[in-house]
């Protein structure tokens, strides 16, 4: 066991725990509202091996290495990939330096990301949007043309819009670890990198639809989701069916009697509780397909439930403006 202190909260965790996991444990153990001391994550996914380390949003500062070697670590570290040591002390939100660095990371993530949230399929449940809202700058300083790509279909169910991708590698890890055959990968390098599949039928696998759930932004979306309205008008319900391939435990998004879409159930960290199969996700679009358990609790913290976005669809597309607007509204 190792004792670690994050922003002044201490906890004993098993050896090999990462700083991020420890922070989440502190939140869980104390039932903290807002979950602030757990660093935000864009690429880490607890259910995917070797995920994390790429986006750098979860960086924290280690002010004391361990009881044995109390020296601080010289650079900020990715909390999702750094394991705790006994006696380690970490600062996250109590460090202006960390917040400054995180703000910088968010700015980097946004410079090549389109600022058209109101027309994005993911609007309302995009982790980048949440992050920009919490940590972003008031105004974009990037005045060059942004990287753009054509939208492409990967298979009959999934649409890829690379323009929005933040290169978190989650979908590749799903393809690698959950499905049995990887067709998907990262091509090119640097800021020209792109996610790609090499043949159209690529994503032809029972569990491939999970790439949609892990994508933190609107780069991979469900083609069968009928966009009659924005997500925040749809009512999420816990539901299940008897399925041979997966647990059949899902969240269905209802509008009146129509199943707009089916997703996995997300935990409070925004991660899928269980992977679901393509049949449940894409083919069961009638309420009669499902046994409805009741309304799904969506974290108050999230933008979806905060209902912030209705008025913004008309706005010109600038995160800065959006934010100001949001702040004013609050």
């Amino acid at each position: 066991m190792a004792k670690v202190t994050i922003d002044g909260h201490s906890i004993e965790v098993p050896d090999g725990t990462t700083i991020l996991q420890a922070a989440r444990m502190i939140v869980d153990a104390n039932n903290y509202e807002g979950a602030n001391i757990a660093p935000p994550t864009m690429c880490y996914y607890s259910k995917l091996k070797t995920s994390g380390g790429y986006c750098r949003t979860c960086i924290v500062k280690v002010t004391k290495g361990s009881e044995k070697d109390p020296r601080p670590m010289p650079k900020p570290v990715a909390s999702c990939r750094t394991t705790v040591m006994d006696g380690m002390e970490v600062v996250n939100i109590t460090s202006p330096e960390v917040l400054e660095s995180r703000k910088a990371v968010v700015e980097f993530l946004l410079i090549n990301h389109p600022l058209d949230c109101p027309i994005c399929d993911q609007a309302g449940e995009c982790h980048l949007q949440d992050l920009g809202y919490e940590h972003g700058l008031a105004k974009t300083r990037y005045d060059f043309e942004r990287r753009t790509f054509e939208k492409i279909d990967i298979g009959p169910y999934v649409k890829l819009h690379m323009t929005r991708c933040i290169m978190c590698f989650r979908c590749i890890k799903v393809a690698d670890q959950i499905t049995d055959n990887r067709f998907q990968g990262m091509l090119f390098r640097g800021d020209a990198s792109e996610i790609s599949t090499y043949i159209e039928k690529a994503i032809d696998n029972d569990f491939s639809g999970n790439v949609i759930d892990v994508c933190p932004v609107g780069a991979l979306t469900d083609k069968t989701f009928r966009f009659k309205s924005r997500v925040w008008f749809a009512k999420p319900m816990d539901a299940h069916r008897y399925c041979k391939k997966c647990s059949g435990k899902v969240a269905i998004w209802l509008k009146a009697d129509e199943v707009l879409r089916v997703t996995s159930r997300k935990d409070k960290w925004g991660e899928a509780e269980e992977w679901i199969c393509n049949e449940c996700r894409f083919e069961k679009k009638k309420t009669s397909d499902w046994i409805i358990e009741g309304p799904r609790h969506i974290d108050r913290h999230s933008v979806i439930s905060a209902n912030h976005y209705e008025n913004l669809t008309k706005l010109k597309l600038d995160i800065g403006k959006q934010q100001k607007q949001l702040a004013d509204k609050k």
Binding site: G53, Y54, C55, R56, T57, A104, V105, F108, L109, I111, N112, Y142, F144, I166, M167, M186, F188, R189, G190, D191, A192, S193
Partner: peptide, 15 residues
């Protein structure tokens, strides 16, 4: 030459 794995380098060098 940036490999593109992490956001500050991928986006910052181009900027």
């Amino acid at each position: 030459e940036s490999c593109g794995q992490c956001s500050p380098c991928r986006e910052g060098t181009g900027w």
